[in-house]
Design a protein around this nucleic acid. Structure first.
Lengths: 198, 198
DNA sequence: ACAGTTCTAGAGCGTCCTTTCTAGATCGTA
DNA sequence: TACGATCTAGAAAGGACGCTCTAGAACTGT
C-alpha cells in the first residue's frame, strides 16, 4: 500500500519515555525524541500529530501495560490472595518494565498531560483508562471489607499499589537492580488490610 | 543601610514552590514566579542569581523543614518508639506543610536541579543535606536490628518515610484535606520493622 | 511501468523563556 | 541635605522549542 515505516511507533515511544524518565517533560523535546529515536521531527508529527499527543500515547501505553498484568494477576483465589497477587504484580512490573515503572512513579499525569490541547478521542481514552482497575478494586473491597466505601477503596489502593511502589521506588530512581524483598511487601500489605477499620 | 525589600525571600520561594507543585518545572518560569510573587524579574536575579539557584533554594528550604521535624521527633524513647515517631512526623509534615510535602513527593531532585549550572557552595549544601538523616537512620538501624547493613537501612527508610508518604500521597496530589488514619500508618510501619529479616 | 499512498527529511518561522541591562526609588548615615 | 548602598522595574537581546511546510523516497496494486 505504501512506504513502510523506518522507525516503529514503539521505538519512538520508547525514546520519549526514556527521556521523560531521565529528565522529565522538559527533556522530552521534539528534537530530543527525534535524535534519540532516529526518526526525523517531521515523522513524529506525521505519526502523532503533536507533542502532547505523543506524550499521551506514551502514558497510555505504560498504564495499559501495568493494568493488563494487574487485572490478570488478581483473578483467582480468595480476596486476600487476589490482593496479595495484585501487590506482588506491582513489584513484578517494576522488575520487568523498569522504565515504564519509573514513568508511573515519577510522572505526574497533570504535569505530563495538559488535557486542554488533546483531541477528544485521546481525552476519552484517558478518562476510560481507570475504569477496569476501579472495578477490580471495588470487587476486592466488597469481598474483603463487606462494602466498598471510599475510605476502604483508598486503603486497598494504598495497600496493593502505593506501598509496593514505595518499596521499589529507591531502586528504580537509582537504576540499581531492584532486589526487592517480596515477603516484606506481603507483610506490609497484610498488615494494612488486616488493620482495624479507621 | 539601604532600601528594604518589598518582597521577602520566603514569599518568592513560596511562589516558586507553588508553581512547581502545580505544574512542574515547566510552570515555574521566571515570568510566572515574578507575576505570582509580585517581585519583578530583575529582583529575582538580584536575589538568587539565576533560575537554577532559585529553584535550588526552594528545594533546600523544603528539605530542611522536613528534616528539622524528623530529627526532633526521633530523639527520645526506645528505638521502635523513635521509628514510629519519625513515621508519624512524615504524616504530620504533610498535614502542616502540604505544599512542601507535595514538592518532596513530586519533584525529582535530578529533574529539578541540574547540578551542572549551580555554584560550588550550593552544590555543597545539597550534598551535605542528607548527612544528619542518614546518621539518624544509621543509629535507629543499629538499635533496632543490631548492625546497620545497607538492606536494613533501606528497610528502615521505607518504613519511616516511603510508606507514610505513600499513605498521604493521594490526598496531597488532589489537594483534599488529608484525613489520614495514623494508626494505619503505625500498623504498617510496625509490620515492616517486625518482619523477619530478608 | 504507472498511479496512489504513506513515510522520511530537515530547513525555517513564530513564540516563549532566561538573562542582562540601565534608570530610578528608597533606605541609613554623616 | 547629600551620599553610598541596595533594591525595584521592565524593556530588550539572544537562544531554544514546538510546529509547519515542501520535496522527494519507498512501497503496493494494477
Amino acid at each position: 500500500m505504501a512506504r513502510p515505516k523506518l522507525h516503529s511507533d514503539d521505538a519512538i515511544l520508547d525514546a520519549a519515555r526514556d527521556l521523560l524518565v531521565r529528565g522529565g517533560p522538559g527533556a522530552a523535546t521534539t528534537a530530543a525524541i527525534s535524535s534519540t529515536s532516529g526518526a526525523p521531527v517531521g515523522s513524529l508529527y506525521h505519526r502523532f500529530g503533536s507533542r502532547p499527543q505523543l506524550l499521551a500515547e506514551v502514558w497510555l501505553r505504560t498504564v495499559r501495560r501495568f493494568q493488563a498484568g494487574l487485572l490478570a494477576a488478581a483473578t483467582s483465589g480468595t480476596a486476600m490472595e487476589r490482593a496479595l497477587a495484585a501487590a506482588d504484580w506491582t513489584v513484578e512490573f517494576a522488575l520487568r518494565h523498569p522504565a515504564d515503572a519509573r514513568l508511573l512513579l515519577q510522572a505526574r499525569r497533570e504535569e505530563l498531560l495538559a488535557d486542554a490541547d488533546l483531541p477528544a478521542h485521546v481525552r476519552q481514552s484517558l478518562t476510560d483508562l481507570n475504569k477496569p482497575v476501579i472495578d477490580l478494586l471495588r470487587g476486592l473491597a466488597a469481598d474483603l471489607f463487606g462494602a466498598p466505601t471510599p475510605a476502604r477503596l483508598e486503603r486497598l489502593a494504598i495497600a496493593v499499589v502505593d506501598v509496593p511502589y514505595a518499596v521499589v521506588r529507591r531502586h528504580l530512581s537509582r537504576g540499581t537492580s531492584p532486589r526487592v524483598d517480596r515477603d516484606l511487601v506481603s507483610h506490609a500489605v497484610r498488615a494494612l488490610l488486616d488493620a482495624p477499620a479507621g
